[in-house]
Structure formats: C-alpha cells, structure tokens
Design a protein around this nucleic acid. Structure first.
Lengths: 184, 184
DNA sequence: ATTGACAGTTCGTTTTTAGAACTGTATGAA
DNA sequence: TTCATACAGTTCTAAAAACGAACTGTCAAT
C-alpha cells in the first residue's frame, strides 16, 4: 500500500491518515492551531526542511485543510490558514496532546496548559458519546459495518486484478449496513 | 529534527507523534483496536512489509503501548495486545475516524459505525471540557505555558552547542507556570 | 550598492520503505 | 518419510522520501 492509495481504503481512519498521517503534517497543524500562518514561521519553529514544508503546505491546501490567502502583492506573499475542515481537526490535536500529557511528561509536568474560555478553567479534553454524553471506553464500543463498508459496492471499480502477494484479507465488514446515522 | 529527537521536545504533541506519528503505526493500532493480535493478522490485513511490521511492533512494545505475550511454546509465538497506555490512545483513534467520517466519505456513507454499549445507540465521539462538560471549540481555548514548558529548566541538559542553521525560534512559552492542574 | 526578509526551488547525499526471498520450528497430509 | 502449509520473523537490493545546504527572485531599508 503506497501513500496515495490510503485515500481509497474503505476506512475513515486510513483516509484521514492519508491526509494528516505523517509527523511533519501533524506538527505543521500544531503550529496552525498556535496561530502560525507564514512559511518562515513554520520553517523556523519546526526546523523542517524548506522543501518538505513547501510540499506539505501544498498538499494541505489541495486537501482543503488550509487555505492560501494573499496578504500582500509584489512580492506575492500568502498566509496559510485553517479552513473549517482544518479547524475540525482540533479534537484530533487535543486528543494527541492529552495522551502526551498523560503518558509522556517528565517530572516537571506539562509543557502547555489549556484554558477553556467558556468556564475559565484549565481543562483536559474528554471524549464522550454524542447520544448519552458518557465518556467513551474502548471496550464499551461495538464496531459494525456501515453503508460504505466494502471497497466496491458490487459495482464501481473492478479491483485491478493484480494477483501479487494477495494481501488484504479484510474480510471483516461484510456489508450489512444497519445504518441509522444522525447528522454528524 | 530527526525522528528520535521528537520525544525530547517540550511539547506533548511532538512526543506523542514520536510514538505513533507515522502511517503504519497508526494503522497497526487501528488493527489492535479491531482485535488483531498476531503478526500474520497485521501483515495480511494491512499489506505492510514484514520488515516494517516487525520493527513497528518492536517499537510499540518498547514504548509500552503494546505488550508481547507468549501464547504457545515451540515454536515460540507471541501476541501483541494493548496495554493501558495503548488503550488510552482510543480517543485519538476515534477522533481520527470521526474526522474521516465527516470529511472523507464517499456517497455511500461511512465504512464503519460505532455503537455505544452503554446506551445502545450508534454515536459520534464528541470532545468536551473536563471542567464544564461543554463541547470544545478551538477558538474558545487559550493555550499557555505549563511547568514543563522550556526545553531545560535552567539546569539539566546543556543544549548541545551546535550553531548550525539556528532554527527553533520557539520563544513563545516563556515559562511562567500558572499551574493548577487537577488529576487527569 | 548592499543587506536582509520572505517564499520558495534545486540538487546531491543519506535514510526509510518497498518488495521479494529466505530461515527455522512445528503440524497435518500423502 | 516426505511434502506442503502456518507462523513469525530476518536479510537483501532497489526505489522512494527526507535531509541539508545553496540558490532564485522580489522588494524594503540602510
């Protein structure tokens, strides 16, 4: 499986990983949420090579996560700012930070604290069920196939017939579609 | 910044990325949460090269995310199962899946649905404030330095004096430590 | 006229990954 | 007994990606 193929997998996680699943992209997005907007800003705070930075920014723009907006003409200069799609990555960022805060801090404690403007307190992010509001535990969640489960819905792409090593035993997800989704 | 250096950054996000921030590791963890436990299981469902799989599993075990448990002798065989530290990655996984469900699905809809055993309903994960329970919006959160903010607390590691390109303008985070953390 | 900020691009070298084959133990079938 | 298969890796070479440093080009300030 190459980088580019991830977006085609019948798995929301694989698709998302295809967009943000590499270390630099994640760090660039961290900077975005910390209000960095310009090329030099990203470059100097991350120490990423300029080459890669340019490429990653391009990709994020292509994916609709960032928007490239001119902030001056001559020389043309642009800022990279989060779109709504990009802002929606916030829970992912917070979940990542929180895990680090819980499992990767040294004795000195957390590098950053987060204050919630609404209530004024420093907080931790907690993931809850949209239906009942209870905190989510992995063992209390049952995963089952949805309408977009199989790679091809018995039509679409003919699944290029490369025999090869014949990996992909992905036989789980039998396409049963017990849907009943509410608006996300 | 090389891979190995991420763990030393004064940033919970960078540290976490140092552990799980590459596409294969994330996909391996997805499989773990879907109950895959053995080498062949990971290999065939992901199509990852055996070489990389072995390496990634080793790293996850080293990091305490997975535990390697023998399930038979002769030939010695082991299963890889999530530790508590690993299970704690669940919110990250769910946040990633949810973003994909929101922004990366085709017309057919979601590949997987998640049912909450507690309430019986299919749900979406929602991230809320631990203090007031309100859903978190990026713009309502103010980030400020915590006790572990600077790379060195004015003692510890002497910050190897390589002049080099002198990146790392990370001058934000002035170390003020307004702590008042509650148990996470 | 020179320097510096800014946003890239180019290019040669080093690291990682991909891909495929090989190792070694053991079970079941012929 | 011999052969095939399952399983969990390891080894090796080629290809892809990342690194590092320098270079391009526009403009402002000195």
């Amino acid at each position: 499986m190459k980088w580019g193929e991830l977006e085609d997998e019948p798995c929301s996680m694989a698709r998302t990983i295809g967009v943000i699943g590499d270390r630099w992209t994640l760090l660039i997005l961290r900077e975005c949420f910390l209000r960095t907007r310009r090329f030099e800003g990203f470059q100097s705070s991350l120490g990423i090579t300029r080459h890669l930075l340019a490429e990653r920014l391009k990709k994020l723009v292509r994916q609709g996560v960032l928007r490239r907006i001119p902030y001056q003409d001559s020389p043309k200069r642009h800022e990279y700012i989060l779109t709504q799609k990009g802002l929606d990555l916030y829970p992912i960022m917070m979940a990542i930070v929180h895990w680090g805060d819980t499992h990767m801090v040294d004795i000195r404690g957390r590098p950053l604290l987060h204050q919630h403007r609404k209530c004024g307190k420093d907080f931790d992010p907690v993931m809850v069920c949209s239906e009942c509001g209870e905190p989510l535990l992995a063992k209390e969640v049952h995963t089952h196939p949805g309408p977009g489960a199989r790679r091809t819905p018995a039509s679409a792409a003919p699944e290029k017939p490369k025999a090869k090593t014949e990996a992909k035993a992905r036989t789980k997800a039998k396409t049963k579609a017990t849907t009943r989704r509410r608006a996300a």
